[in-house]
Design a binder for these strands. Sequence first.
RNA 1: CGGGGUGUAGCGCAGCCCGGUAGCGCGCCUGGUUUGGGACCAGGAUGUCGGAGGUUCGAAUCCUCUCACCCCGACCA
Length: 570
Amino acid sequence: MRATQFFLATLKEAPSDAEIVSHKLMLRAGLIKRVAGGVYTWMPLGLRILRKVEQIIREEMNRAGAIELLMPAVIPAELWQETGRWEQYGPELLRFKDRHQRNFVIGPTHEEVITDAARREIKSYRQLPLHLYQIQTKFRDEIRPRFGVMRGREFLMKDGYSFHANYEDLQREYRNMHDTYSRIFTRLGLRFRAVAADTGSIGGTGSHEFHVLADSGEDAIAFCPDSDYAANVELAEGLAPASPRDGHTEQMKKVATPGKTRCEDVATLLRLPLAKTVKAIAVMHDEQFFLLLLRGDHTLNEVKTAKLPFLNPFRFASDEEVERHMGCRPGYIGPVGMTKDIPIIADRAVAQMSDFVCGANAAGFHLTGVNWGRDLREPDYVFDIRNVVEGDPSPDGKGFLSICRGIEVGHIFQLRTKYSEAMKATFLDESGQPKIMEMGCYGIGVTRIVGAAIEQNHDERGIIFPCAIAPFELAIAPVGYRKSQSVQDAANRLYKEFLATGLDVLMDDRDERPGVMFADIELIGIPHRVTIGERGLKEGVVEYQGRRDTAAVKVPLADIREYIRERRSA
RNA sequence: CGGGGUGUAGCGCAGCCCGGUAGCGCGCCUGGUUUGGGACCAGGAUGUCGGAGGUUCGAAUCCUCUCACCCCGACCA
């Protein structure tokens, strides 16, 4: 592609509404343009990237035996009513009426449509298994779209759905997809990790998320460097401390802690480690009041907490409710002196503590030297309700956990029969008996991958695209293209030769000054650059610089094609 | 949804407190000089000052209402 025949729209300054690097760089590089909150136009340069990502996904899905189809973005409400999601889904589901006042939705996901297709087409176990997928635009009316393409409302997604005669076969396909996803992200050139995940609202049993590792990621991942354990922190189990509870050495004392409502402040005031404090969190389930206890340096895991049967669902108590049940303002509440009608749920770590500090249920006071059994009754329940932290023992018993951050770009689920049952997707088995199909579903956020790739690969000069998804693999920068016939000739000849070898090459024939060309080529993240200048040509050399290199190297003109070939395969 | 903030040229911003009919940098157009890391000189074009209403002789500026966008908040006892 010649730059003069293409459409480059780079910006020196990023629009002020962009917050994270990938968003700023995508705007500056002219990859996307905002049209509405969370809705973007993919400009020609950006579209090239998106298409490359799509193509890799498509090739690997096909290789894994899945078959591509395309479902509509607009879905009649009846299908969603059939599974009950019309009522359940909430305002994230964009609904509208057509001219006949019939209800429709813009699909945020396609379980209903695919299950409807499957039940119409599949009659016999002989037609199973079947895995259908599409790459299609979805719409989710996010509360707060942000981070550009990373949390947009409209986005491109690969979603696949598999149908099976039995659970064993679903598990086989699930493993197949686990492998396929690993191949896809490897081919995309991204550092990623597959982690065990919470199944969330979609339901089902097994589930893994695929995360692109990046410090700016929204999700925290717990993993064990000494084993293959990896899980979303929402799921990672916090084990009980191995050592038994220490014996108490202190007497309980009431100390004044005026204005110190946070555990950090209390620990600082009393010159105690944060891990000696206990924070009490008041929650409600219907009209029942509960007290949750966490060590001061730990944080509540709401996903785990919501799974406790007597707390599902729960909400945080209001200040007014705290005062009514505890007789004390929030900030100084604690478990000592609680009557039996307020159940105390302690995290495993709290149950092991001795001589700890907690609120005194009197404004401006905390208690020190508190001990279970002596100063208050043993906790009514002990559960794992906290987020694991760096250094916690790995749940697989093989070392200690590290925490890193990731961007979720893929998610695979064993749906089982949630949708097939609701929609009566049955088939006849070998004995002629009707059975409900087992289902799996597998998603990849195509647009989000572009953002995540940039989030993971950039520097102060711009984007550093992995070769596999770079809009162009190589750029030719001729210095003085219009002035020097020898430069122009050499550049044109090289351009044609590279094209002939199947390279995606951008020929910068804009007649810009070198600084402008270099800055643009670096900003948009082209991995390889060849600079041709009159000076070099006289010596028979051109210059090569890789996007991550700090300086250019001279390469004889005659060797440049071979040189690039080696660099690409390196 | 709650709290905060911002809307002025394609992009980044100033002007607003203290009303007098809009400016800077980048980009864009023309001409010239330049040509190995975002050139220089000269000339030029571009705004219903987010929208509606009000106050006033006069509103980007003051008041009311609206819309859009951004940030923070769902670990707080």
